[in-house]
Design a protein around this nucleic acid. Structure first.
Lengths: 203, 203
DNA sequence: TGCTTTTGTCACCGACTGGTGATATAAAGT
DNA sequence: ACTTTATATCACCAGTCGGTGACAAAAGCA
């Protein structure tokens, strides 16, 4: 089995496997090479070290939702525009949270982003920022009430990220079971009502 | 210098010093003993290991704001009740964020809480949950509009935590400089307006 | 065929990790 | 002064880490 591509892809996928099985902390040259069943020196030869391997993994994996996954097809986006702004925006956040929660590996990296920077967290940061830009563009189509939307969106995204990241390790917060779907739904419903209130006042 | 108490306190304070200087990751028996200028075996003898030392440190440090720091004295709490609910609640969150941002060590632990559990993160979790309970109790005095307050409060606290934790390593989010005071102020102002809108509708 | 390049293994390095048993030394009690 | 006890140091363990140089074997090419 002298197949460079095969070996490379084994190394790359081992990164994801390790993150999933043992967490980000367990990822290192020795561990990755061991789970790939390959010598660690190849990480240096083929990827110029762990950083390069991180980048290769970042490019390979579906570890971030696309704009389409959140906003839907062209038709669905049109539908979105016909809804009241509060409903449409909340639906977008709901989908965003759903997409995130379906990607445990991404959440793991998201958590590590706050304690350590490396090629992988930087890649995640980059694609997220890119998506944020596109989302902001698309969301300008919605008929939202007057407000400081960048700050409101950030606030909500912060809350979603923290809830997703924290729920992995700690179940309760202020007496609420933040792992349960119900907690998420309550959050979104509250958000929708706040925005709806601003909508009414705007008329 | 055969002073057990002195030695113990040197070990305990070294934990805080290390977290501040090198981050949570750098804390280990070897490093702590080294910075304390003492043999690591004493960590096992006096604290029964790193976990025990964590707990001792948690008990020693002022690493979480008290309810008074957030709500103020009895008089100030009375003042708070005379304000519109939206203003009062926002003020409380503003003070909470301020208290948090003034404690970099706490933020560091808060960040690690999401990736690893140990005696220290559990202690932090415990005092926070306790404060959350007391806060909820006190906040029932405010004249707030009808809403699912537990979920709204959680949402806002999540956002504050994430912003505090993330700003240490990454400055921008969706084009906003989240390290700047202005970003915080915008967030609080938006929050206040959302609640205010609900207040108006409630009448 | 023989030579070169690619692909991969292996053994080893120094530095660090958490953890322990034996030992020195200062203080306290008699 | 002598013994006991508390306090602290030291040397060492096995294991892991990231990283490297020497070598083996397969593949490509002449």
């Amino acid at each position: 089995m002298r197949d460079k591509l095969e070996t490379k892809s084994k190394l790359v996928s081992s990164v994801g496997e390790l993150i999933g099985r043992k967490g980000f902390n367990a990822v290192g040259v020795n561990a990755v090479a061991r789970t790939a069943g390959v010598d660690k020196v190849l990480i240096y030869r083929y990827f110029d070290g762990l950083e390069g391997l991180y980048k290769a993994y970042a490019a390979s994996a579906d570890f971030w939702p696309s704009v389409e996954e959140i906003l839907g097809t062209q038709e669905q986006q049109a539908e979105l525009q016909s809804l009241p702004g509060s409903k449409a925006l909340t639906l977008v956040f709901r989908r965003y949270a759903q997409a995130l929660r379906a990607r445990p590996t991404t959440i793991e990296i998201l958590a590590w982003e706050t304690v350590e920077r490396n090629g992988l967290t930087e890649a995640l940061e980059h694609v997220r920022e890119e998506m944020g830009l596109k989302m902001a563009e698309s969301m300008r189509q919605l008929n939202l009430p007057n407000a400081d939307w960048p700050s409101i969106v950030n606030m909500m995204v912060f809350a979603i990220h923290y809830a997703a990241v924290r729920a992995r390790k700690i179940r309760h917060f202020n007496g609420i079971d933040i792992q349960a779907d119900e907690a998420w739904e309550r959050m979104f419903l509250s958000f929708e009502r706040m925005i709806a209130a601003m909508e009414v006042l705007d008329d």
